[in-house]
């Protein structure tokens, strides 16, 4: 049993000039835990995600990450080289738009293999086999390994992006609206895939979404954001089934029932 969290966020605040991006956010993320950050556009959820994942620099606050040696490190006190290494080995980042997370003009195999090559793998055959195996795990046929993602459908691209991120066995994956631009049926397939990968690999994940159904399906715990503040948080089904805050009640009651 893991007695220590993987990530500790303390009083994270981000201002854009005088405007609040997110304000005084603190939480811990535990191994194997999936946290959903929900809220409408402009609520600060993507700002929060980018600040935690070091894609933006917070105005104040700290983010501590438990490295593989068990030591907690403040991400903003790390050297850039170390931080970038962490990002491409122990972390994943799944963008809403796959084109932001993929190299559209190189093959699927090279997209998946890039992280391996970045950490020093130098055996073409092994890299290609690993890439092919990962394509299989995200339900892309092995015979597409040499095709470029620009020839892929939106759902396939998103699955490829996931494979590209997971190939180094990261412990923490950030996802920004991972099902954002997809058709409903494609969404369902992707969600199920993400869910089972997260379960099988014991990943921790922070998922930003405005879609409460996504949050319900993927996350253990959720935080509701409004105007830069976390207004409610707790067990996902508790927040969705017994929302306390006026805004959360509004959100939950706004879900379309099918």
């Amino acid at each position: 049993m893991n007695e220590q969290p993987l990530l500790r966020v303390n009083s994270m605040t981000k201002y854009y000039g005088s405007r609040i991006g997110c304000r005084d956010v603190s939480f811990e993320l535990w191994p194997g835990e999936v946290l959903a950050i929900v809220g409408e556009s402009g609520s600060g959820k993507t700002t929060l995600l980018n600040n935690i994942s070091t894609r933006l620099t917070p105005t104040s606050g700290t983010v501590e990450y438990r490295m593989r040696d068990g030591q907690f490190r403040d991400l903003y006190r790390m050297g850039e080289a170390e931080r970038r290494f962490l990002m491409r080995t122990d972390w994943g980042f799944v963008h809403q738009n796959p084109a932001d997370g993929l190299r559209m003009t190189v093959s699927a195999g090279a997209n998946v293999g890039e992280r391996l090559m970045a950490i020093g793998d130098r055996h073409y055959g092994d890299i290609r086999n690993t890439a092919t195996r990962w394509l299989g795990r995200v339900e892309i046929d092995a015979d597409r390994v040499d095709d470029q993602p620009r020839d892929f459908s939106g759902g396939m691209r998103q699955r490829l992006q996931i494979a590209r991120n997971l190939v180094t066995g990261p412990r923490l994956v950030f996802m920004d609206e991972p099902t954002g631009g997809l058709d409903v049926s494609v969404q369902a397939r992707l969600l199920d895939l993400v869910r089972s990968l997260v379960n099988d690999l014991g990943l921790s994940a922070i998922v930003v979404t405005h879609d409460l159904a996504v949050a319900r399906l993927l996350s253990h715990r959720m935080m509701v954001m409004k105007d830069g503040y976390v207004i409610e948080q707790g067990l996902t089904d508790r927040v969705l089934d017994d929302p306390r805050e006026p805004y959360t009640q509004l959100l939950v009651s706004s879900i379309l029932q099918v």
Binding site: G109, A110, G113, E114, M117, I119, I127
Partner: peptide
């Protein structure tokens, strides 16, 4: 790593 991506391609 990117350099090897080119060679991989």
């Amino acid at each position: 790593g990117l350099m090897h991506v080119k060679l991989y391609e």
